[in-house]
Design a protein around this nucleic acid. Structure first.
Lengths: 235, 235
DNA sequence: GCAAAAGTGTTTCAGTTACACCCATGA
DNA sequence: TCATGGGTGTAACTGAAACACTTTTGC
């Protein structure tokens, strides 16, 4: 029962940072600069201080890596196997973040040897970080099926082909572009701009932007946009 | 960065235990037997030991309260505000459990002054336990919409009216019984028995049981049984 | 003029909802 | 015999899926 002996344990944060660059979904990793497991790839992590909440700790640690403020960050799961960290008993609270890679690029933090890896081609990571990434991918699928959080991954202006390739990457499928665009536009969340992105094709694709007001109205609502049961298997 | 100073923090577990008794959804609470907040209602909690995983700790703590083994238990969220515990900086990993009240009754643990409260009528709890319960209710709605975990709440034999009142309680609505039973039976997960429960009515309601094989086959599958978007709002 | 990607409509089908009456029984 | 809860069927509608051709333009 409580207030008997209360063991004290090291509590860490690890951040799974997803990014989208307009065509690929990527994961941000850092090269570990100290032992053990020096020079292996890992998630960005740090310890929870005694005078900060765990949410504050995750924000602080993510900011240290990316320099960004206001990033979408959500607690994922707490990993607490006894020997998950080989040096000392540590439990880790994993958070996942969604960011627009372009926004971040200017301030890429060389201090941490941070690098983006395509989600389909992530190296193996230290400790139980692989499991954290797997869990985060599932959560992203889960969450994005019901909530419009994916806009966190996009720049202010984006094209329909871009947003579709993002969904395709998240769910590892290819949606039918006719059904996809109809369904997406029917949410009324998008505003079509009079401007085209000519980078991806000769014809060019119209830019859209999020209708922020409607977005905020609908944030609490279900966004049953995409998913057929198959894509949610194993969640 | 890691392996600088690593503060050590007290790590607790709190269990949100949902139970169903055939007509009502309930929450199991204990009366706190020590200060501070002595005699107030709280979730069942305890500390994580240095030599056990957090999952093991949650199982141990739940077992201490209920005497039960093999209870459905799932990690919910880690609560880590600095002053959430008034005595000492403590982070708490909340777990939620689903149990069949009848199964548990025999071994009700008087040691902890444990008591079932109807979910609609839960007293206010210590620390941030109210928030934990709210979070758990949402998670249960979320999860039960897509996974057949609710059978964890039911005895081996149950009637359609019973299972429906469970869903009604979870989602705080009243489903149409014709649509409900059709949809439920169409999953093929239920076996109708040649036996009636005469407790609830004069006519009596047929017992059903879970087809365990199909259940296990389908555990990984989506169980898109019930939910219309409205019920998932705010998740 | 052709290659490459963008954009658009219709039909079919399945699943969901709404809805009302009869049945069995104990008191 | 009547009050109570259990059990069942149909019609209308809505949303999802499948599917192929035309448009634009840089080369």
């Amino acid at each position: 029962m409580k207030n008997k002996a209360a063991p004290h344990i090291t509590v860490a944060i690890d951040c799974i940072v997803f990014g989208f660059d307009g065509s690929d979904l990527k994961l941000l990793l850092v090269k570990r600069g100290f032992n053990p497991e020096m020079n292996k790839w890992s998630l960005m992590g740090g310890f929870v201080n005694e005078d900060e909440s765990v949410d504050d700790a995750s924000t602080r640690i993510l900011n240290k890596l990316t320099g960004l403020h206001g990033v979408y960050l959500e607690q994922l799961h707490t990993f607490g196997a006894v020997k998950r960290d080989t040096t000392e008993r540590t439990i880790s609270i994993a958070y996942f973040a969604l960011i627009d890679i372009a926004k971040y690029k200017q301030q890429l933090s060389h201090d941490y040897h941070a690098e983006w890896f395509p989600i389909k081609n992530v190296p193996s990571l230290i400790f139980d970080h692989d499991a954290m990434v797997e869990e985060a991918k599932k959560r992203l699928q889960y969450k994005a099926a019901l909530h419009p959080i994916v806009f966190e991954l996009l720049p202010e202006k984006f094209t329909l082909p871009q947003i579709q390739s993002m969904y395709d990457a998240i769910y590892e499928v290819n949606f039918d572009k006719r059904n996809f665009s109809r369904k997406l536009l029917s949410t009324g969340l998008l505003i079509k701009l009079n401007e085209k992105d000519k980078a991806g094709s000769k014809k060019g694709a119209f830019y859209y932007m999020l209708d922020k007001e409607k977005y905020n109205e609908n944030l609490y609502k279900i966004f049953s946009l995409i998913i057929t049961p198959d894509h949610l298997q194993f969640l």
